[in-house]
Simulated assay, not measured.
Amino acid sequence: MKWDFSNISPEGDSKQIEKSLSDYLNERFQDFANYYQSILQISISINSSNPIASFLSLLRAVRTTPYKLYLFIDEYDNFANEVMMGKHQISNSRYDALTSAESSLKTLFKAVKSGSSGQGLERVFITGVSPVFENLNLNLF
């Protein structure tokens, strides 16, 4: 399974960003359910207001198969970088809402960590981007 967080819009307030994240994740879970329905012994329940519940349902379904689930998360830090770099509305409260202990993003990563400890998620590969080079204007050629 692959999650590409560059596909999630960092625009709007923290609630809009959380909604965008929730919708994106549930779409990924539904795509997974549709693609692998022939090998899953139980169906995956998609909870439109709680992607963590959807993720846990997906893990339950995977555990009923002999297969292992690998998760690839690309640009996991996309939200924080977009907010920090100021491409959109700059706000400390937006950044704090995305990275605080109570944030949906942090809750999601806690669920991923838990899922990789015998709950059906075999391995997790995470890549991010560094905002350090983004604003450099180098004329090398």
Rank of each mutant, 00 (worst) to 15 (best):
1 M>C: 05
2 K>D: 10
3 W>P: 02
6 S>Y: 06
7 N>M: 10
8 I>N: 04
9 S>D: 09
10 P>K: 06
10 P>F: 07
16 Q>W: 02
16 Q>F: 00
16 Q>C: 01
16 Q>M: 00
16 Q>Y: 07
17 I>W: 05
19 K>F: 14
19 K>N: 09
19 K>L: 14
19 K>T: 13
19 K>V: 08
22 S>H: 09
22 S>E: 13
23 D>Q: 09
23 D>T: 15
23 D>C: 13
24 Y>C: 10
25 L>S: 06
25 L>M: 15
25 L>K: 12
26 N>T: 02
27 E>I: 06
27 E>P: 00
30 Q>H: 13
31 D>G: 09
32 F>Q: 12
32 F>W: 00
33 A>Y: 01
34 N>V: 10
35 Y>T: 14
36 Y>V: 08
37 Q>E: 08
37 Q>L: 01
38 S>G: 03
41 Q>A: 13
43 S>R: 15
45 S>D: 09
48 S>P: 11
49 S>K: 10
49 S>H: 05
49 S>N: 12
50 N>C: 03
51 P>A: 04
54 S>T: 14
54 S>R: 03
55 F>R: 09
56 L>M: 13
57 S>Y: 09
60 R>H: 12
60 R>F: 00
61 A>H: 12
66 P>V: 01
67 Y>W: 05
69 L>M: 15
70 Y>I: 07
71 L>S: 01
72 F>A: 13
79 F>P: 01
79 F>T: 10
80 A>C: 03
81 N>M: 07
83 V>H: 01
84 M>G: 04
84 M>F: 00
85 M>H: 01
86 G>V: 02
87 K>G: 12
87 K>E: 09
88 H>L: 04
90 I>V: 07
90 I>Q: 14
93 S>G: 09
95 Y>P: 01
96 D>C: 01
96 D>F: 08
96 D>G: 07
97 A>S: 15
97 A>Q: 10
97 A>E: 03
98 L>F: 09
99 T>S: 07
100 S>D: 14
102 E>C: 06
103 S>V: 05
105 L>I: 14
105 L>C: 13
106 K>N: 15
106 K>W: 00
107 T>E: 14
108 L>Q: 03
109 F>W: 04
110 K>H: 11
110 K>M: 09
112 V>W: 04
113 K>W: 08
115 G>S: 06
118 G>W: 05
121 L>D: 00
121 L>A: 01
122 E>D: 14
122 E>G: 08
123 R>N: 15
127 T>R: 10
129 V>T: 13
131 P>L: 05
132 V>D: 03
135 N>D: 13
135 N>K: 13
136 L>I: 13
137 N>C: 04
138 L>W: 10
140 L>N: 04
140 L>V: 08
